[in-house]
């Protein structure tokens, strides 16, 4: 199973490396949105720093939607769907492989956004560095949920517009827990319960995905 997970992830990342959608489209979109957020909250550094965690996670969520949409599109044509089905791969391995590739992409863009947040929204470097493990956990949870909801939306002719409507409510726990954990680091308060919430969400989405992905593929 691990071999198949790695094969699927390697394939998705190779496609990304070729197309460079993350580098030339997704990352610039995220950074531009972050700049706009900075402009929207005004020039006061203390206000920007106070709102930075929430703005960061909103931008990360928007970026996630683009990455999920892109990943889902890789297997959206009828011909590719059929050829993947014919390979008879274990659906659980496909689910985890795609989530792994998405995690690598989201963690990369998320790290770039974190640097942007430090520079543009005046968050301390210490808080940004300390929140990195939380970002990895949050992006892993977003990836697992994203692959699941991307698959559900892909079965619709209006996948691009259906995906945000389906996925954003599911992302709410990740958004809240991530923002609270980041804010806790900024104001130096305990963050354990938010990390716990993220961990529970991660396990829940991984379990649901492993159970349902095969049925979603067939539908």
């Amino acid at each position: 199973m691990i071999r198949l997970v790695l094969l699927v992830a390697q394939k998705d990342l190779l496609i990304e490396r070729r197309s460079r959608v993350l580098l030339w489209q997704v990352a610039p979109f995220g950074l531009m949105t972050l700049v706009l957020c900075g402009l929207a909250v005004g020039p006061t550094a203390s206000t920007q720093a106070r709102l930075a965690p929430g703005l960061f996670y909103i931008v990360l969520t928007l970026v996630s939607l683009l990455v999920i949409n892109r990943t889902s599109q890789l297997e959206s044509s009828r011909g590719t769907v059929t050829s993947i089905q014919i390979l008879g791969m274990d659906p659980g391995s496909v689910f985890l492989g795609k989530a792994l590739a998405m995690w690598v992409q989201l963690a990369t863009v998320g790290s770039a956004l974190l640097v942007g947040t430090t520079v543009l929204l005046h968050v301390s470097v210490r808080a940004a560095v300390l929140t990195l493990p939380v970002l990895l956990l949050a992006s892993a949870t977003l990836s697992l949920a994203g692959v699941l909801y991307g698959r559900i939306a892909a079965s619709s002719a209006n996948a691009g517009t259906l995906l945000p409507a389906l996925a954003l409510p599911a992302f709410a726990p990740v958004l809240i827990a991530g923002e609270r954990a980041f804010s806790s680091l900024v104001v130096a308060s305990p963050l354990a319960r938010w990390v716990w919430l993220l961990s529970v969400a991660l396990v829940a989405y991984a379990s649901v995905g492993l159970l349902l992905y095969g049925a979603l593929e067939e539908s």
Partner: peptide, 19 residues
């Protein structure tokens, strides 16, 4: 399981376009 034992050639392109 059956799918692993058949070969399929359809109308549409069935490979990843970027690979």
């Amino acid at each position: 399981e059956l799918r692993r034992h058949v070969g399929w050639l359809g109308h549409e392109m069935s490979f990843y376009a970027d690979l």
